[in-house]
């Protein structure tokens, strides 16, 4: 059951990095893709229907860690306290910017929310670079507990998210923002594959045998997930099918 649980966790983490990585990257490039408030709203409309269904992959990944690998939760969150706190903070700031931007008409409000989206997206990408870098260095031989050289060395991985976002923007945007997105060398499939590879490599250094729950608890969590996974993937597919095609006008956000 342990191998099943590891695969399930890999699916959720990789799913998060590929799916949410794109909307994080678009957030990072918001000031570049959209030059005025209206264009920025169009850029946000490009990710609007997706970001809610994307971030739940991480929430579920954390759930799987809590249920199947409680020892990892302990080592990772406690060991990387400042990095993970920064990650959560950036996540909240970014989501609030996205959700609240369209609610008030004032230019200052919109500008403030745009700022929250950009700063939050960069914060998230950098925090992920740091977490993944820490795990990659750990995979190279150091024990997974607390910060190491990779915590800082991983920060440039944030650029991967920006490129991934540009690749996604090529599919979704229209008009001038699309033209600007095309100037970036981002290809969704390529950056997506790299993100998956990084996630898998990062997982190699985790001593799964030591951090896993007992067989009965592992069966509960992994079993539930395996049974439900087709429904979760189906829900995600429904989102992609419903919102396929380019955006030409603002959405609710």
């Amino acid at each position: 059951m342990e191998i099943v649980a590891v695969v399930v966790l890999a699916v959720f983490v990789a799913g998060y990095l590929v799916l949410a990585g794109a909307d994080i990257g678009v957030g990072m490039l918001l000031p570049v893709l959209g030059r005025d408030a209206r264009e920025r709203r169009l850029v946000i409309a490009g990710i609007a229907p997706f970001f809610l269904g994307n971030e739940v992959w991480l929430v579920s990944a954390v759930g799987v860690v809590a249920g199947a690998f409680p020892g990892l939760e302990h080592r990772l969150l406690e060991g990387l306290f400042p990095v993970v706190s920064g990650l959560v903070l950036a996540w909240v700031v970014r989501d609030m910017g996205l959700w609240l931007r369209g609610r008030v008409e004032a230019a200052a409000w919109r500008a403030g929310c745009d700022g929250a989206i950009v700063v939050g997206s960069w914060g998230l990408a950098l925090a992920w670079g740091s977490v993944l870098g820490t795990l990659l260095v750990a995979a190279a031989g150091e024990p997974v507990s607390g910060m190491n050289a990779g915590t800082v060395a991983g920060l440039p991985l944030a650029a991967l998210f920006a490129l991934h976002g540009a690749g996604f923007a090529r599919w979704r945007l229209s008009g001038a923002p699309l033209e600007r997105a095309r100037r970036w060398p981002g290809r969704y499939a390529v950056t997506g594959a790299v993100l998956v590879a990084v996630a898998v490599l990062a997982g190699l250094g985790v001593p799964w045998e030591q951090v896993r729950a007992s067989a009965s608890a592992l069966t509960v969590t992994a079993g539930t997930t395996v049974v439900l996974l087709p429904a979760l993937v189906g829900a995600q597919a429904l989102v992609w099918w419903t919102f396929r095609g380019r955006v030409h006008s603002p959405s609710y956000l």
């Binding site: 739940v56 992959w57 929430v59 579920s60 954390v62 759930g63 799987v64 860690v65 809590a66 249920g67 199947a68 409680p70 939760e73 729950a213 608890a217 509960v220 969590t221 539930t224 997930t225 439900l228 429904a231 979760l232 829900a235």
Partner: peptide, 15 residues
């Protein structure tokens, strides 16, 4: 404690 939290995220919150 983690088992119900895992079920919450996967069987409820995700959907």
């Amino acid at each position: 404690f983690g088992a119900p939290l895992a079920m919450e995220t996967i069987a409820a919150f995700f959907i």
